[in-house]
Write a protein that binds this DNA or RNA. Sequence first.
DNA 1: GACCGGGAAATGTGATCACAAATCTGTTCC
DNA 2: GGAACAGATTTGTGATCACATTTCCCGGTC
Lengths: 215, 215
Amino acid sequence: MLIQTRPDPSPAAHERVYRGLRTRIMHGEIAPGESLTLRGIGREFGVSMTPARESIRRLVAEGALTLSASGRVSTPEITNDRIEELAALRSLLEVELASRALPRAHIALIDRLQSINGGITEMVERHDAVGYIRSNLEFHRALYLRAQAPAMLAMAETVWLQLGPTMRKLYGRLRRSEPPHYHRLIIAALKAGDEPGLRLAVRMDVTQGLRLLTT
Amino acid sequence: MLIQTRPDPSPAAHERVYRGLRTRIMHGEIAPGESLTLRGIGREFGVSMTPARESIRRLVAEGALTLSASGRVSTPEITNDRIEELAALRSLLEVELASRALPRAHIALIDRLQSINGGITEMVERHDAVGYIRSNLEFHRALYLRAQAPAMLAMAETVWLQLGPTMRKLYGRLRRSEPPHYHRLIIAALKAGDEPGLRLAVRMDVTQGLRLLTT
DNA sequence: GACCGGGAAATGTGATCACAAATCTGTTCC
DNA sequence: GGAACAGATTTGTGATCACATTTCCCGGTC
């Protein structure tokens, strides 16, 4: 075999740009309604307009960005109806994912979740909004990875992406020292093998924060 | 006002290409594993590689196409696990959409559904696979449009898109003169305002065919 | 007959450019 | 003072090109 396995020597430029923008959006680092330009993105990542355009198309397709009639791209202004819908989607998808992960949840996973949870508490104390959002999503992703349902997980992440720009705003309205209460319930239900309890805990955790925005 | 309202005078080239490919994939006109080339697409639609590439990026982002490590694009070969997952997603999303549409379902909608249903029967008699798939999706979309949940509908359509290439294969295994049995149940439940019945009928309709593929 | 190798063709990637449309800006006019 | 207009600038779009890599095909070797 002549070809040495090099899994990802230098990701394509459009991939780099895509990943960069994606995590920024998902973590709420871009305000709703903020607008972007192809040349600006290109300059920022040191590439030409071509890869910038491709990454934008991808993000638009995933609902992370909207583009106006004239082709201008910006993060979507989110309405209450849309938030309600996205919260319902999170509930539907993530309850199912958690349920599928339950029979596969070993002790190692529970340890991992508890560790991530500690990180979340730390972020709350530090008032680090981006860190909080990132850790919170990490908690959910760690659990759902056990569901062995990649298409479903991808859909859930797409919903997170669409909610990204409002997450920041959401965080501002949370109680300052709010501990991840429902996360504890999720872990307890996992330990007990309690499926109805797990479903309820996930549903509450997922809709709790978003309810604040719609009222 | 100087600017005359022209809602869509000439859709951008990449949009045309995107729509063209999308409907072909969703209707099952492209076999699983079939591969496409940027130059080929460009030649077919009379455009250069640039719009072809953008539409491909979009479709890949939506899961309608996969691209290999070397960047080659093709329709995804679908495994049984993936089909099971996508069927579960259809079930989750479409049951919810139908449920939300129920309180808004007027007589005009029911008439429309019955009319589409007639078209489906016709397609079955004609052994027109593509027409069958198209009419079937039209039936579901007409119902879900009443749910007033655009983000959720978009997700459901994404799942249809991902199932597209296997729809054709599925059709081949259906009984020749199979009438849209569960569609009748859906319409009956709508008329009766029977929510549990509607949820069940949609779940059965959505998973019925796909079950054939996994066994 | 099957496997391997090398060269030719095909393919994806990214940069650059021209062009049209949209946006911005500074000035003028009421 | 504020609205309207015209020119300048910015921006998205799509075509074209060069380049590196991959894929394909044909001939040779064991």
